[in-house]
Design a protein around this nucleic acid. Structure first.
Lengths: 209, 209
DNA sequence: AGTATATCTGGACGCCGTAAAGATCATCTT
DNA sequence: AAGATGATCTTTACGGCGTCCAGATATACT
C-alpha cells in the first residue's frame, strides 16, 4: 500500500513533505506562473490536503521563502559559472551582469518570488549578503579583481550596490516590449544588455584611473 | 436625500464613481498598503456594493491601471521639479535619479502598483515612453542637455535605458535594511543615493569626452 | 408619458488562506 | 510486547476574495 515513489525511510507518513511541497511549488511556478501559486494549489500538486503544509511551514510566506532560497542558490551558481567562463578580467563584471539578467529572463517567476518576499520584509535574505560565495560577495570580489580598491570599504560597498542595482533594474526592464526594436537593431538580446551596461561606468571603467 | 459631498451634475446615481473608486483605492493604498487593496475593499471605502466597480472597470486590473496612471503622472511632476531645481547641468541627471528614488520611497505602494501591472503585460504604459514630458523622455532630454549626442539614436536610447534601470534598481533596493549602516556612515539617505549613482558612468561622466 | 439604457444592489459560485478537531502512524518508554 | 506520546495528515469550517447574473432604480430620449 506504500507509494512507490519518494525515499523510503523518511520521517513520517509522506516522506519529507516539505521537500515535496517546495518541488511542487517550483513546478507550478514554471508551468502556471506566480499568480497560480496558491498554497492550496501547491498542496494539490503534492497530493496532500490543503492544511497539510501548515505542519512544515508557518504560513504561505514561509513556503515561498523556502522556494526563494533555492532561487538564490541557483543564481549564485549562474554567477559563479559566468565568472569562470569570462575571457578577460575586464569582461568579468559585464559577464556577471549579463548572467544575472539572463537568469531573471529564464526564471521570471522564480526571480519575482525571490524579491517579493524581501520587499515585504524590507531586507534581503541575510545569506544573500553574507555568505562568501553569495551573489553580492561575488560581485564585490569581481570588482576587486577588476581593480577596485579593497581598502576603501565604503567605496567598495557603494560600487557593489551600484552594480547590483544596475543588474536588477535591467533584469526587470529587459522583458518589456518597449525594448524590442532596440534589441533587434542591435542584433541580439545580449548585445542589448551589453549596450546598456556599457553606458554605466561601473561596467566599463577600470575604476578610478 | 442626496449625498452632500461630490460634484452635483454628474452622469448617474453616484456622480462619477470611477473617480471616487480611484481616490478610494489611493486612500487605501496609503493607509493599508498594497496587500489590503482588494476590489471589495475599494468598493467598501467608496460606499458602494462589491459589484458596482464592474460598470466602470473591466476587472480589478483595469482599476489598478488607472491608479498606476496617476502614479506615473505624479512621478513625471516630481522629475520635472527636480530638473528645474538642479543647480548645474552636470548635476541635473543625478538630481533626476535622486528624485526618482525619493518618489519611490515616499510612495512605495503606489510605485509597486505602477510596475506590477506592467510586469504582467510585459510592457510599460505607452504614455510613459511616448509623451513628450513623460518620465522616460525627461531622462533622455536631460542626457542630451548634459552632452549626449542626440544624433546617435541608438546610443541615446541605450543611455536613457541605463539611467532608468539604475534608478529603478536603486529605488527597489534603497529601502532594504542591509544598507542602513552604509547610509548612516555617509550621513544621510541622499548621500547614499548620490554615492551609488556616482559609481555609474551615466551619472558622473560628460558622455564620451 | 413611456420606453430604453446606464447604473447600482443582492445573492451566488468557486476560489483563497488559515484554524480547530479528530484520525493515523512512527517512535519511545516500560 | 504493549501502551503512551506526539508528529503528521484529513476533515470540516470560517471569512474574504474576484466575478457573474438577475433584478431594482434612476436617468435620458422620443
Amino acid at each position: 500500500m506504500r507509494e512507490t515513489a519518494a525515499a523510503e525511510s523518511r520521517p513520517y507518513h509522506h516522506g519529507d513533505l516539505s521537500r515535496a511541497l517546495i518541488d511542487a511549488a517550483r513546478r507550478l511556478l514554471e508551468s502556471e506562473g506566480p499568480s497560480a501559486l496558491s498554497l492550496r494549489a501547491v498542496a494539490r500538486e503534492a497530493g496532500v490536503s490543503p492544511a497539510a503544509p501548515y505542519h512544515h511551514f508557518k504560513d504561505k510566506g514561509e513556503l515561498l521563502e523556502a522556494v526563494a532560497a533555492e532561487g538564490w542558490d541557483l543564481l549564485n551558481e549562474s554567477l559563479a559559472a559566468a565568472r569562470k567562463s569570462a575571457n578577460s578580467v575586464k569582461d568579468k563584471l559585464t559577464a556577471l551582469g549579463v548572467a544575472y539578467v539572463v537568469f531573471a529572463r529564464e526564471n521570471p517567476s522564480l526571480y519575482r518570488i525571490m524579491y517579493d518576499g524581501s520587499r515585504n520584509k524590507e531586507e534581503l535574505p541575510s545569506h544573500v549578503h553574507l555568505e562568501d560565495d553569495s551573489a553580492y560577495c561575488q560581485v564585490r570580489d569581481t570588482l576587486v579583481e577588476a581593480g577596485a580598491d579593497p581598502t576603501d570599504e565604503i567605496a567598495l560597498e557603494l560600487a557593489t550596490t551600484a552594480a547590483w542595482c544596475a543588474a536588477h533594474g535591467l533584469a526587470e526592464m529587459a522583458s518589456f516590449k518597449q525594448f524590442d526594436t532596440l534589441k533587434s537593431a542591435l542584433g541580439s538580446e545580449e548585445a542589448f544588455l551589453r549596450g546598456v551596461f556599457d553606458h554605466m561606468r561601473i561596467f566599463a571603467d577600470d575604476h578610478g584611473k
